[in-house]
């Protein structure tokens, strides 16, 4: 039997530090997409709260509790990260394993918001986009999920196949910001 070596989506591409901004990889495992069936949202929410301590998130929000996070991921969909979906959800929601589907990078440090603002067409100022806020939007031309995890840190998630493009875009924006601040 051939022994295969598992590689993370951004293996060899991160970490990157330019100026005061750093990009590191975030591994999302396990990650499950939860899409409640019609009229089952309340039951799904209650089961999630009982099982993992986080409810089904409101649009544009991330909830976290004790290492488990749940991220709004579009109309009627959420991503549960860091814990398996409670067994009782089967039959109430569509559950899809997404652990290997996404590449996720954390961009942090003073000026991270300025670098990201060059790529993302959303107002990312802290007053408009507080910690725990998430947005389905674009990073340049690429569909992405952008979440603020701290006042100067964001997580950017794209399709796994777009990981290299993501790091390229972020590096370019960080280089430009660093040159401007030099």
């Amino acid at each position: 039997m051939v022994k295969l070596i598992a590689r993370t989506p951004l293996d060899g591409l991160t970490p990157v530090t330019i100026g005061t901004v750093t990009v590191t990889e975030v591994t999302l495992d396990p990650m499950t997409m939860i899409a409640p069936f019609k009229n089952q949202l309340a039951k799904v929410d209650a089961l999630l709260k009982a099982g993992d301590g986080v409810g089904f998130p409101a649009p544009n929000r991330m909830e976290s509790s004790d290492g488990v996070r749940i991220l709004w991921a579009g109309q009627g969909r959420a991503l549960l990260i860091g814990a398996d979906a409670p067994a009782g959800l089967r039959g109430l929601a569509a559950l899809t394993d997404q652990a290997d589907a996404s590449a996720c990078a954390q961009i942090s440090g003073a000026g991270a918001v300025d670098a990201l603002a060059r790529l993302v067409p959303v107002d990312l100022r802290l007053s408009h986009f507080p910690v725990g806020q998430t947005a389905r939007t674009f990073v340049n031309h690429m569909a992405a999920s952008v979440t603020r995890t701290a006042p100067d840190a964001f997580e950017v998630m794209v399709m796994r196949s777009m990981g290299q493009t993501l790091i390229h875009e972020l590096t370019e924006a960080m280089t430009n910001i660093a040159a401007r601040n030099a």
Partner: peptide
């Protein structure tokens, strides 16, 4: 209606 006001390029 869910995400708020966004640029037309997202639509």
């Amino acid at each position: 209606p869910l995400c708020g006001t966004r640029d037309r390029r997202e639509f």
